[in-house]
């Protein structure tokens, strides 16, 4: 059993609640490096889902996860409070991100991709890279981790689809501007919805800027045992859980990933409806 040490609601627009949880898992905290994720199962009947490790605290043994309530399991997670327990929590999983000496790294986070991007931004800042962060969201209200990101970035931009905050447009609008301004960019890290990562990769490909993306494939075990998380990279099949989750964005077959992510859409909806949460937002 793993104890919930802290819970915080990061954003709440009625539908898209984003919650932060600190889970007591000292062994996982100790081994965490940027890029790692965990798998958790809330209770006996629960499914196993992957979530990125957003932060750790070695003193309290806390592992911070940030989850967007999108379906039954994440909503159930959102209902937990400090003092509650979850049944299973395992990690850290995946390949740690290794960055060579880069002069200028542009970190792009879209939607919930901001959470997994955070430890990478922090890490890059610590190893003295020049960090530019661009975060994007549909609207101002659902921006998360803005202050934390700002603190660890040399340059910081926000893009909102509706222009309610920062640049009006997409993260690629800001990136394109930087490229047009002749700012030298050595590496781009993009984490977010597939269409965003695809758009970033398509842009940087034209300028030959190395781009890493972090994939959120469907997973069951997270240890290379099942192959649920397969993705085509450069024409080869890879397992996101053991070969990734970061891959060269110029080589990933995003369309295939998109289709695979939608595999259980109908079942997920029916599961949610049965819980009495069907479409009406959260269930408390």
């Amino acid at each position: 059993m793993f104890k919930v040490l802290r819970k915080k609601v990061l954003s709440d627009t009625g539908n898209d609640r984003v919650v932060l949880l600190d889970i007591e898992a000292p062994l996982v905290a100790k081994k965490h490096q940027p890029g790692h994720f965990i798998m958790l199962r809330i209770d006996e009947k629960g499914e196993r889902i992957p979530l990125t490790i957003a932060d750790t605290n070695l003193e309290t043994g806390a592992v911070t996860i940030i989850a967007q309530e999108v379906g039954i399991t994440s909503k159930q997670l959102g209902r937990l409070e400090a003092g509650d327990y979850i049944l299973d929590f395992v990690g850290p999983l995946g390949q740690a991100a290794h960055y060579p000496e880069h002069k200028h790294v542009v970190c792009i986070g879209g939607g919930l991709g901001v959470a997994p991007l955070y430890p990478e931004v922090k890490h890059l800042h610590e190893i003295d890279s020049h960090v530019t962060t661009i975060i994007g969201a549909r609207t101002k209200e659902i921006l998360i981790l803005e202050e934390e990101m700002r603190k660890h970035s040399h340059q910081f931009y926000v893009a909102t689809d509706d222009g309610s905050y920062g640049t009006k447009g997409f993260v690629t609008t800001v990136l394109q501007q930087m490229i047009d301004d002749q700012q030298p960019v050595d590496l781009v890290i993009a984490i977010g919805p597939i269409p965003m990562m695809k758009a970033v990769a398509n842009l940087t490909r034209q300028y030959n800027i190395k781009t890493l993306v972090s994939l959120n494939s469907l997973m069951v075990d997270g240890t290379g045992m099942c192959g649920a998380c397969r993705v085509t990279v450069g024409g080869e099949t890879k397992f996101t859980c053991i070969d990734g989750p970061e891959f060269d964005g110029h080589l990933v077959d995003f369309d295939e990933q998109m289709r695979r992510l939608n595999m259980y859409k109908d079942k997920e909806k029916s599961a949610l409806a049965l819980e009495g949460c069907g479409g009406v937002g959260r269930c408390h």
């Binding site: 196993r48 069951v220 099942c226 192959g227 649920a228 695979r260 079942k267 029916s270």
Partner: peptide
């Protein structure tokens, strides 16, 4: 081979046996 609906035996059996997908949605693994 990466089309939806293509499973390794490990994944198919794990979903059904360990995760009890045959009792979906009571058990939440589809």
């Amino acid at each position: 081979e990466n089309l939806n609906g293509v499973y390794s035996a490990n994944e198919f059996l794990t979903r059904v046996n360990l995760m009890r997908a045959y009792k979906f949605p009571e058990y939440r693994t589809p």
